Amino acid sequence: MKTPLARARRPVAFLGEVLLSAAAAAGGQRRYRPQDLVRVLADTSARAVPIVCVVNFLVGAILAFVGAVQLAKFGAGIFVADLVGIALAREMAAIITAVVISGRTGAAFAAELATMQTNEEVDALAVLGLPAMDFLVLPRVAALLAMMPLLFVFACLAGLLGGMVVSAAMLDISPAAYLARTADALNWTHLGLGAAKSLVFGALIGMVGCYWGLYAQRNAAGVGRATTGAVVTSIVGIIVIDAVFALCANTLGI
């Protein structure tokens, strides 16, 4: 039975092991199979694009609708493009994509590793001299680190398309005018901030999902608790990290 202090130290130890494993892999001491990384990359990229695009399209449409209702009263409907573009690039695209991926991929990581823990497959790997951190965790974290910025790009494009459709329908703004206004409003600072958030969110989701999976109880109920815990922890962490980014960006005048 672990003490509360030991349980509190466990996430810190897990983070340290992930960093040490990543440093070893960067130095050429890779312990995972390339085909495992390719499988996780496919699951976190191409297979995740449809749901990410659909959700962000709707978010962009909602932002445009709310903005159109208010801005049209002042004859400033064209500024809907500014609202949608900046909100998506700085905040919404990264956050919504991260929430979707935490429910889709982070939960899958937790359930898969928790099931392996229940079936004692993780112990079998350790007996064979294959540390779970190198063989199971690192490929999943690396895949999300690589794919989340790309998903962020797709999310921005889908959200802008949703805003353009609503603006054309409600405000009779042509697609050319909408895109021109968006190009004027956006800059690399907005996009860079959103991309940086997506990178951090990807690392968070990958590590949280793997953590809950590896330390799950070895029974059927433990798999369910690990999946739920991974999703809840990821979403709370996403909001907290976004708040930290907002404070830092405001302090730095970004």
Rank of each mutant, 00 (worst) to 15 (best):
G253R: 13
S45Y: 03
R9N: 09
V127L: 12
T228G: 08
A94K: 01
E121V: 08
L199G: 02
M92V: 09
V240G: 14
V99D: 02
A230M: 08
I239Y: 10
F14W: 04
R10H: 13
M164F: 00
V52D: 00
P139V: 06
E17G: 10
A177W: 09
I239G: 13
G60M: 00
A61D: 06
N250S: 15
I51F: 12
G103R: 05
A169D: 09
A48K: 01
R218Q: 14
G67V: 01
A42S: 09
A196K: 03
W188G: 15
G60I: 00
A81C: 03
E91Y: 01
E17V: 02
K73D: 14
G103P: 06
D184Y: 11
A132V: 14
I96C: 08
L63P: 00
V244D: 05
A98E: 04
V244I: 15
V12S: 03
S174K: 07
M1C: 08
G85V: 00
L193W: 03
T227N: 07
G16D: 06
S174E: 06
G129H: 13
L19Y: 09
A132K: 11
A196G: 10
Q35G: 12
L71K: 04
A6R: 14
G103E: 05
T115P: 01
V165M: 00
G224A: 02
Q217E: 14
F152G: 09
A126G: 14
G85P: 01
